[in-house]
Design a protein around this nucleic acid. Structure first.
Lengths: 141, 141
DNA sequence: GTAAACTCTATACTTGGTATAGAGTCAAGC
DNA sequence: GCTTGACTCTATACCAAGTATAGAGTTTAC
């Protein structure tokens, strides 16, 4: 199967598939005489797995780790579970941060009604006051 | 004041300050004879303003817009409020998405106990099953 | 035979910075 | 006067997870 068909079947773009190959998530496939990539059904399965992981917002690195673990059926799946657990933690933390951020924004926003002029704008005044700067999260997620 | 002092006073890194200058958030300062940047207190204020906006996770573009509006004291502050409102909306949407994501992850995770082998791992099985792929958010925030 | 559709590689772009390299400048101590 | 260390300058590359292009070659349909 050529890359276009694989893209159709997976719903991923052709560039994304090539990108995953470069990132070593997907093994480099065989090539036709004209140097076109030629994929097996295994590749399709692999890509759907990757897509599923990405839909859970796992990073390429996390997926890489999971794929590596998966390759050895008799190993413990501990690292997979640990990856998911950490990922859940990260997301929970990010939710907490965003909630705090939302509260700050709502608070700032509440200081200005509509139809004011710039010089009277409470929001701008708020932004000028050097409130104890909340250290904002590196937005990983 | 030289850039190092400004960095100390604002808590921003020297590179970040130069980066903001390149992005036109901060006006290019005067230069000494030896081509060192020489800042006024205005620049300090401006940077603190920018830092405050960034701490609210506003993008460079949003900050740019707000700064532009702020420059005209008699204009309406409508665009500022609109920017904040949209920003709040975006964050609320992102929180909703992350909550959904968290539920999915917890659900996947619940299918595997500890100390299983890869071939028995419920999490891996879940990831293989081609569940209706939740279209995952482009993580803007 | 030719045009459309497909594929290839390589490269640049996105965001908000961070991290170098290599060169120049300044102040202090000897 | 000279050296050393701290500072600054520009330019460039890097991060994640792709997306978008240019320019070339290939296959397919008519």
């Amino acid at each position: 199967m050529k890359i276009g068909q694989l893209a159709d079947k997976t719903g991923l773009s052709i560039q994304t598939i090539r990108f995953y190959e470069r990132k070593a998530l997907l093994a480099a496939p065989q090539r036709t005489q004209s140097n076109y990539r030629s994929y097996s059904d295994e590749a399709l399965k692999q890509l759907l797995f990757i897509k599923q992981c990405r839909s859970l917002d796992m990073t390429i690195e996390e997926i890489s780790l999971v794929l590596e673990t998966r390759a050895k059926p008799d190993n413990s799946c501990e690292t997979v579970n640990a990856t998911i657990d950490k990922h859940i933690d990260d997301i929970e933390q990010r939710i907490t941060e965003l909630n705090a951020l939302r509260r700050s924004l709502v608070s700032v926003r509440s200081t200005c009604a509509d139809n004011k002029k710039v010089k009277e704008c409470g929001v701008l005044h708020q932004l000028e006051s050097i409130a104890e700067t909340r250290t904002t999260p590196k937005n990983i997620i």
